[in-house]
Design a protein around this nucleic acid. Structure first.
Lengths: 138, 138
DNA sequence: ATAGGTGCAAACAGTTTGCATGTAT
DNA sequence: ATACATGCAAACTGTTTGCACCTAT
């Protein structure tokens, strides 16, 4: 990441302003508003570089492609809305995880994913969902 | 799943005796001991059918390909050994997950994944790991 | 000027599908 | 006999790599 280019600036900006983890495809779509010719390859390469650099962290949810968010956030977990597909950060954690551990095992880390309906989807469960994320049209 | 064939019997047997979630590749490898000509396609088709049928459940861990285990187990979560790559079931759960939920969100479900070293790896951390799972050699 | 970055196309891995052959019923 | 299952190869999706061209320094 030695050089500052328009595509990198765009990708960083998009990630900074997203407020939630974004997939490479989402990053591409949003960044192309700034740099129309941007290619998916560059998104992957830049994102991987930013992860190596410690500026981004990968958010990997079960059965989903990796999403990326700014590093340095406080310990948190994720909520995956089954209705609109968006992923939200939830702050805080639980105790008692140690209790789950089988004898002789050592825990270094953990991940918690909550599934359900986000606020927006909850309030209009009868209406059509707002696909904030996948295949969003414009 | 109308017909009982040697390949399906083998796949079911392997899953029944595994005691932990298996990936399609692992299922293939183990099943080929019974049915040498078995193809990966059949594993996928059978596994998907067994999931639809409710006999299997998919275990999807962050950033990992789906694994499969017998359905009907009590509520449990998973431990992923970073040393040998194997996935273990851990029984029990935590309270307090509700507290993490942002206002207005509704939780239907949750997943917890613990990461660390399993008992076998803990006891020989200085030795070479035993790859029970990936690229296991025979 | 030159190392580093970009974009296209091809390579890859995991999974699914089409189709002709094989087999349980 | 026949519908269902299998296995190969091809299609597909998401991600990475090779390579020629371009550009920030």
């Amino acid at each position: 990441m030695a050089r500052r280019t328009a595509q990198r600036a765009a990708i960083r900006k998009v990630l900074e302003e997203a407020g939630r983890p974004l997939s490479p495809a989402e990053i591409l779509q949003a960044s192309q508003l700034f740099v129309p010719g941007l290619g998916l390859t560059t998104v992957y390469r830049t994102v991987n570089a930013l992860v190596d650099e410690g500026w981004l962290v990968a958010v990997e949810l079960p059965g989903e492609a990796a999403r990326y968010e700014l590093a340095g956030k406080a310990h948190h977990h994720h909520f995956h809305c089954r209705c609109c597909g968006a992923v939200f950060n939830v702050s805080g954690c639980t105790d008692g995880l140690e209790d789950l551990l089988p004898k002789g095992f050592e825990m270094e880390d953990h991940a918690i994913v909550l599934y359900g309906a986000c606020e927006a989807c909850c309030s209009k469960l009868s209406g059509s969902p707002t696909p904030v994320e996948s295949s969003a049209n414009a």
